[in-house]
Nucleic acid binder design. Sequence first.
DNA 1: CGATTTTTTTGAATCGATTCATGAAGGGAT
DNA 2: ATCCCTTCATGAATCGATTCAAAAAAATCG
Lengths: 339, 339
Amino acid sequence: MTTTSMKDVARAAGVSVGTVSNVLNRPEAVAEETRSRVLAAIAELGYVRNDSARQLRAGRSRTVAVVVLDVANPFFTDVVRGAEPLIESAGGVVTVCDSGEDVRRERRHLEILEEQRVLGLLITPVDDSSTAWIERLSGHDIPLVLVDRGAGRHPHCSVAVDDVHGGRLAAGHLLDRGHTRIAFVGGPASIPQVADRLTGCREVCVEQGASLEVFTTAGLNFAAGREAVEQMLGLDDRPTAVFCANDLVALGALQALTMHGVKVPQECAIIGYDDIDFAAAAAVPLSSIRQPRSQLGRTAAQLLFDEIGEGEGHTHRNVVFQPELVARSSTAADLQPLA
Amino acid sequence: MTTTSMKDVARAAGVSVGTVSNVLNRPEAVAEETRSRVLAAIAELGYVRNDSARQLRAGRSRTVAVVVLDVANPFFTDVVRGAEPLIESAGGVVTVCDSGEDVRRERRHLEILEEQRVLGLLITPVDDSSTAWIERLSGHDIPLVLVDRGAGRHPHCSVAVDDVHGGRLAAGHLLDRGHTRIAFVGGPASIPQVADRLTGCREVCVEQGASLEVFTTAGLNFAAGREAVEQMLGLDDRPTAVFCANDLVALGALQALTMHGVKVPQECAIIGYDDIDFAAAAAVPLSSIRQPRSQLGRTAAQLLFDEIGEGEGHTHRNVVFQPELVARSSTAADLQPLA
DNA sequence: CGATTTTTTTGAATCGATTCATGAAGGGAT
DNA sequence: ATCCCTTCATGAATCGATTCAAAAAAATCG
């Protein structure tokens, strides 16, 4: 006999299983003397509650899943960190799922989470094709909050940052510095955050008559930034400023530029997005667009529990934060007029 | 009726629940015609398996938990990335738990994981006081592999990197550069990795007659590095080289040094540990001690499944990898003899 | 066609905790 | 001693999927 169950504890303590259950769940309903006898038996036998059985009866688990695009991206770990305290203090258990910007992985996670009957979900969807699955969970009464993504016309709570505005801030800053040939690096284009940041950037470029070259990458990481820069350096008449869709990409780009002896910011300016801690510590301290990362997580958790608490009569809320420009050395020099 | 169960599917398809179960678990044992009828009913009703019930019956979940010291540390995300493919291809589900270098948080996670009857565990224990709990899980037949930590005399599989050797490499490199006043920054001292790296460092310093100043920090992150440097800069006769217990600390230290106008490496050299991707992209590319991060994860997962597969007749294995010095700019200059 | 084997399907037992109607025991009040 | 209230403890029913011995149906063969 591998595992000891409540029945064993009950037998050892000379009580019924119902009483053991009461000791665990409503200790005040059990007489002092009985309770300590049961607790002694539990300690004696090394009994551990079986969560599956508990959940089966309860019909719902106490797990809140956070589905992110990339756990290795500090932006998301900060969002998770922001959400954790609230979830845990509400008796929940946090589980982090990494979709890796891949719809198939995301879908696999969602299938499993649905089978697990999770208490709720905070999710940053990979792209629009995620919607069908998300609606399915939602239809099966799993409350969810969209993170870093407006709900659009979807009936959900959401917390987001105005990425179009962020894109405008970044591009505006570069143009202020005198640049007229801008490169945008990021992808895939199906990721809404990328699309929005590019939209904002493009708007500003068009308004002010700057040229814009778009380098679409396969992902939002170090390697993507490096590769895009390699490609850019091959051009005859290359851009003088790069706006990267996030800081990881920007750090990769910065590394590649430095490796090729291109001086930042004198010969090429760079600005990233997210303002992760590493940005300030980079080879050339990186200008970036700051998002309220942990507040994003905290608010999302808050909305989720509001929804769980309010039940039927719940009205969805959509919170939008404004991003903020953080200018550092990587965009510090005004463009030197070419002779 | 919120959830639809197998019973509902059975009724809709005009078969027994046993047959529905067979369709899901051993489709080849069900007649073609019946199978498609059941599948149709499943699709029709939007039926989703209840994992709790399944686990209850099975006695075990298919979750493999990875308990790490800090999810925000790229070292650990890389370890997790390394372990995931193998776990998932074996039909497992990965869940990452962050102990945050805090024994209490670690313990809470372990309690929950035990209640969940996880399939297995990859864990980097916070410190020696974790041992009792780990043994408890192990005693309850939950197989586990210690990660980034030798098993010592404990009866477990483990994958580790020789941290004492790593400490020697780092210190040796600094002394080779002509430094004779070394600072070690890291903590808390109860973390074995920190203790081992310091041990190696101290050995070399003693052997070669260099002085060693130890700055013990509360954690292994950015802020810790910054604070230690602030403190160090207050000293009259300060060290000329800093060995940080990991790269996050080193990046924090580097940032603080730069902020105070101390030139790296000319006025102060720095070397970190882990060689995370950010190290190479730092303000001054950071020398570091490289660990085979994803291989660590992959091997750990391998050992775990070996243990699960072999059952009783299993013999524990302890794999130790050797770290490797990666010299970059942050230690590039030989010490300038002070006039 | 009846006997025999093979293929399918059935349905009851099981996993372990929770819940709740029911009942027992103890304490006061009359 | 009787009746009424509390306070505690009981144990059967329940959650939903899996398993497996046994029954039923279909196929094969002489």
